[in-house]
Design a protein around this nucleic acid. Sequence first.
DNA 1: TGACAAATAGTAAGCGCTTACATTATCACA
DNA 2: TGTGATAATGTAAGCGCTTACTATTTGTCA
Lengths: 342, 342
Amino acid sequence: MPETTPHNAPTLDDVARQANVSTATVSRCLNRSGKVSEKTRERVMSAVEALGYTPNFGARALAAKRTLTIGAVIPTMANSIFARGLQAFQETLNEHGYTLLVSSTGYDPRKEAEQIRTLLARGADGLLLIGYDRDAATYDFLQARNVPFLLSWAYRSDEPHPAIGFDNCQSMMELTKLVLEMGHTDVAIISGIRDGNDRAVDRVKGIHMGLAQAGVNPQTAPLIEVDYTIEDGAAAFADLMQGRKRPTAVLCINDVLAAGAIQRAQQMGIRVPDDVSITGFDDIEIASLVTPKLTTVHVPHAHMGSLAATALVDMIENKTTVKPVALDSAIQMRGSLGPIAP
Amino acid sequence: MPETTPHNAPTLDDVARQANVSTATVSRCLNRSGKVSEKTRERVMSAVEALGYTPNFGARALAAKRTLTIGAVIPTMANSIFARGLQAFQETLNEHGYTLLVSSTGYDPRKEAEQIRTLLARGADGLLLIGYDRDAATYDFLQARNVPFLLSWAYRSDEPHPAIGFDNCQSMMELTKLVLEMGHTDVAIISGIRDGNDRAVDRVKGIHMGLAQAGVNPQTAPLIEVDYTIEDGAAAFADLMQGRKRPTAVLCINDVLAAGAIQRAQQMGIRVPDDVSITGFDDIEIASLVTPKLTTVHVPHAHMGSLAATALVDMIENKTTVKPVALDSAIQMRGSLGPIAP
DNA sequence: TGACAAATAGTAAGCGCTTACATTATCACA
DNA sequence: TGTGATAATGTAAGCGCTTACTATTTGTCA
């Protein structure tokens, strides 16, 4: 057993010696760059097999200036908001021979810049980022480094950056209209922290626009802004319900907050949707796990992830540029939304 | 702007030139290996700042044979079974200056071996693996490569490998006894795939032992084995309830399956726990999101993750060896388990 | 069979970094 | 002020890989 690398792993050299060829030939076999006779290839491959050789990633990256790795920086892995989309992203990436490296920021904009650097230091050939809101410095950095990057989970018609997502504002406005059509006028909002989060900003904006269009003054709708956790959603709901005038509908800007709200409603003995309607956004698993099931906005996460992967690979390999794509979302009507009590 | 690395990132050389020192000195500054005068350090640091320099990870790993990276291979990221523990693992790792690289196998034992190789190729200094069940070849490989590794999420008194976890069999047996004490005798089991999954094996074994000790023949308890998804849990529950003799308690070997069961019970109009009791294992978020809330086994995920991180870092840095640790779990009594109907 | 082109294989120069070793600057003290 | 020890810095040899370039083999055809 050779004794060279960190964990005394065999190296290209070992394989070359064992197969009685040069390192260049071994490398060629491993990179399927043709130009190797069938006979030598077999010899090399069986040497690889025999030694249990795996190429050293760092060395390869250093020499090839390419890693077939793509980085994604997402706000959180704690819930499944990004799970399904990322899963599809990864699968499609794999089909193209790429590997995904994920890191999360805990919704902290500063950490995002840091993670981007880390991913790049690790050799990421391209990046998937969530949404638009980030420092100009970060965009400048990306540009200076000439890194292919793609935004996702959001779409804004007035932004130039390559993006594959959906119109958060528009979707939320449609849901709001539906709520209003059911007779609700006393609407309250539970939002996650909006600073640095364009999805949240747009969703709240969508609600406000929906209200305004129906002749309701958006300023009259109470809004509580909390962290993106079930507990905080629950706490916000409790606050709302202890106000002097209870809303008849609580619009949460995502399913995690809404799940918290429903949970707390149950604890407080408030009937949903009889006493109060509750809605979410994203349509993740927990939306249909709570009782009653959540009316929410269904987003084509898997499709989005898959499209994003293909687009990003194309950007990397063919230096193409992607024009923003807006995917359709659809209201998913379930038990948590009902007409206002007579 | 220099034009060297992949994304024309500045290199150590650029920094050295800018600060008018040798690359060795820059490297020393960046690795806080002392032996650099305050004056030069400042000069170097401002050069680093000015250029926006980030060390190339691959090059660093190659030269230092150390990455301060630890790899974890888990079955899935789709649900939060491993999320909380891994989160704590990561946080503690960070405190020690290490970074976590996670990859998942989709519960496929073959993929695990592959992921281990990949992580090692990427320079992982050590590995966190889930449970015991894997090919002897994999253990041999780890040993030959001399990689520090730690098992978690499981503990078996008769296994020698370093592990920090809990006794799945014991915990599940206790829960089973509680169920039996409430008068249930017609018990059914919903298990995930047990092949290659010692946690599942042990949990089912725990149920069987609990039954046997109460004088119930374990073979009479129907068992359905499905994938680890909410849908499969729901389907399994439906199957069970359509059998000729309905059980009065359904023990699921984790919360995901149990959540599916509860969801389906509701759809089928079966009252929980009046008509049937349902229990889970793990105590993840969804356990208290479903109605009624799930009686389950609470596992100290965060504590376990944190301990594992400290232990693994110690193994790496001081070549210590860890003796297996068993953490306590506790039954979390909630609404889904009730006494048998009279 | 000899000449030339095409197909294979080998040589060696780095990629950006760390670090053992060599060199130089600095300082305390006699 | 000279001396030796010590602190600070520089030099250069790789780490394991890819790839441009060069050398060799093989094959083809007249």
